Simulated scan of single mutants.
Amino acid sequence: MSDHGFSDAERQALYRAIAERRDMRHFAGGSVAPEVMARLLRAAHQAPSVGLMQPWRFVRITTPALRQGIHGLVEAERVRTAEALGERADAFMKLKVEGVLECAELWVAALMDGREQYIFGRRTLPEMDLASLACAIQNLWLAARAEGLGLGWVSLFEPAALARLLGMPDGAKPLAVLCLGPVHEFYPAPMLVQEGWAQEKPLSEMIFENHWGQQP
C-alpha cells in the first residue's frame, strides 16, 4: 500500500459506500439535520471540475407549491416517456420513478449560466461542465450513503420548464432533481434489477485494451 493510502478500515468504509449507494425512490419522511446537510453540500462542493470552473448550483426547494410543481413536471415526463417506450409502456408505468413528495429534502442541481466564457478543458469537450456537475452529485450521493441517508436522482423532466419554474437565468440548465432523506431500508440491489427492468453487465465487458473492442 502507498504511504499516502488510508487505513484498512477507512478504505473498507469508502468501498462500502460505493457498493451500497442506491438510486432511492422510497423515503421515510423525517428530516435532515442542518449540520448533516451542510456536510453533504461541502462534499459536493469539493468535487473536481474542469478548469476549476465549479459550474454547479444547488437550489433547495422548501415550499409545498414548488414541490407540487416539480412533481407535476416529473409526472408529465413520466407519461411521455411511457409513450416513447412503446410495448414496455405498461411495465414502465408500474415502476416508482421518484420520491419528490415523500423525501425530507428536495434539491435541484443545475449548471450555472455564463459557462461559455470557460474555455480551459472545454474547447473541444464543452460537455465537461456537465461531467463536473455529475461529479459533485456523486460526491453528495456517497456522503449521503455514509450518513445513512438515501438519495434519488430524478431526470424525468423538461429542463426548460423546470428552469422557468425556478426562475433560472438564460443559460442555466437544471440537470437533476435530487430527493434526499431517511429511508426505511436501502435496496439490496439496484431497484431496476429488482423490478426486472434491466440487468447489470459485468465489468469485463466494459474494459478494452489498446483498441476499441479488443479484450485484455
Rank of each mutant, 00 (worst) to 15 (best):
D3C: 05
H4R: 14
D8F: 10
A9K: 02
E10H: 07
Q12H: 12
A13E: 13
Y15E: 12
R16E: 15
A17C: 11
A17R: 07
A17Q: 07
I18D: 07
A19H: 05
A19T: 12
R21E: 08
R21T: 07
R25D: 04
H26L: 05
H26M: 01
A28C: 01
A28T: 03
A28H: 01
G29Y: 05
V32E: 02
V32M: 03
A33I: 03
P34K: 05
P34E: 10
E35F: 04
A38W: 06
A38E: 15
L40F: 02
L40A: 10
L40H: 02
L41F: 03
R42V: 14
Q54N: 10
Q54M: 03
P55T: 09
R57Q: 14
I61V: 15
T63S: 15
P64D: 12
A65H: 07
A65L: 12
A65M: 06
L66I: 11
R67P: 09
I70Y: 06
I70G: 01
H71P: 01
G72I: 03
E75A: 14
E77A: 13
R78P: 04
E83H: 09
E87D: 15
M93T: 12
K94F: 00
K96M: 08
G99P: 04
G99L: 06
V100K: 06
L101E: 13
C103I: 04
A104S: 02
E105T: 08
E105V: 15
E105K: 00
L106Y: 08
L106S: 06
W107H: 02
V108C: 09
A109K: 01
R115W: 05
R115K: 07
I119G: 02
F120C: 06
F120M: 08
R122E: 01
R123E: 14
R123C: 06
P126Q: 08
P126Y: 10
P126H: 08
E127V: 10
L130R: 13
A131H: 13
S132A: 13
S132L: 10
L133Q: 00
A134W: 07
A136Y: 01
I137K: 05
Q138D: 14
N139S: 15
L142I: 13
L142Y: 09
A143Q: 11
A143C: 07
A144Q: 06
A146L: 10
A146M: 09
E147V: 00
G148I: 02
L149G: 02
L151D: 04
G152N: 03
W153A: 12
W153R: 00
V154T: 11
V154M: 00
F157D: 00
E158N: 11
P159Y: 05
A160K: 09
L165D: 12
L166D: 07
G167H: 07
P169Q: 11
D170C: 03
P174Y: 04
P174M: 06
L175Q: 10
L180Q: 03
L180M: 10
V183K: 00
V183T: 06
H184Y: 02
F186K: 05
F186L: 01
M191V: 13
V193D: 13
Q194T: 03
Q194K: 03
E195L: 09
E195R: 13
G196R: 08
G196D: 06
A198H: 09
E200V: 01
K201N: 09
P202Y: 05
E205R: 08
I207Q: 03
F208M: 04
W212D: 02
W212Y: 15
G213D: 08
Q215Y: 10
